[in-house]
Amino acid sequence: MIIRFQPGTTAADVQAVRERLESEGVRTILSPESARPIFAAVDKVPPTLQAEIESNERVESTVTPKGAWRLAARSFREAPSVADIGGVRLGAGEVSIIAGPCSVDHLMEEAAIQVRRGGAHILRGGAYKPRTSPYSFQGFGKEGLRKLKDAGEKVGLPVVSEIMDAAHVGPFVEHDIDCLQVGARNMQNFTLLKAIAQVGKPVLLKRGLAATVDEWLYSAEYLLAGGCQGVVLCERGIRTFETATRNTLDLTILPLLREITHLPVVVDPAHAAGIASLITPLSRASVAVGADGIAVEVHPDPSQARSDADQALLEGELVQIVAEARVMAAVTGRRLHAQPRIPDKA
């Protein structure tokens, strides 16, 4: 249950309600919302106690979200939440583009330059790669993180990379990776979620291959309950009976997510389509339906890409996606995020 107070309710009044609930064994978590006090009762509230809480004149309303997730619920916040990824604010009514190679490789710097020139806002690159086959390229690991961060700093873009194992938190912190990505295969790796929630960095949480919206939001709840302040959901296609494309991009859930959660949502059309020519129209559709961002793969020479070469875009295609995102954002009453400034050379 979410308890929403009248604006201006004193901290003492709020605390009294929390203590009443906690005296009955119901744990509570306060929302970071500043416009009005809101808190979540994470355990089941007995009907008689709920009636008592609702009769409190300072309580404006109580809301029981559809799922058992609480901190991810739309009613837990007054406005949509914002994830600040190295100065790029996802969820603040602006559209951002995440781009870069699927795997960090020897062309990382060139890729970063193209991503910058192409108009994107955040640089991506995989250093630890979850591959279906154990014989496929597994990523450069810690060295890959260093290459990614160096490339990002050179072009003035924050970086995001996938973390596969709680044991890798150290290298991600050491290299100051601006956003940790949890891949589709790890969406329900709760040990990993609990570990990275405490890192103090935003997390890009991809939807599992066969995860329902409920399951996805439970995973987000793990991160929020663990203290993560910047959770971003990433729709990347789900497995269906359709075999014409790699996965089915589920854009249906975007307007639904707007109604049930305050979290920003990014769409990765590349992993859904698996075919480069489909990515531009799917990106356009994603912004039109309300995505806060688009994540695409860009490589200076896809024939040399160490993974997902078939869905890697060239710089010109990225330019097209950014231009269309700008137009679609404007016609839907939003705007494209300004590109971060390139830092002055020391």
Binding site: R326, V327, R335
Partner: peptide, 15 residues
């Protein structure tokens, strides 16, 4: 008209 205005503002921001 609203889309036209937003697009014009976006053009100005880009420049």
């Amino acid at each position: 008209d609203r889309a036209l205005v937003e697009l014009l503002q976006e053009r100005a921001r880009l420049l």
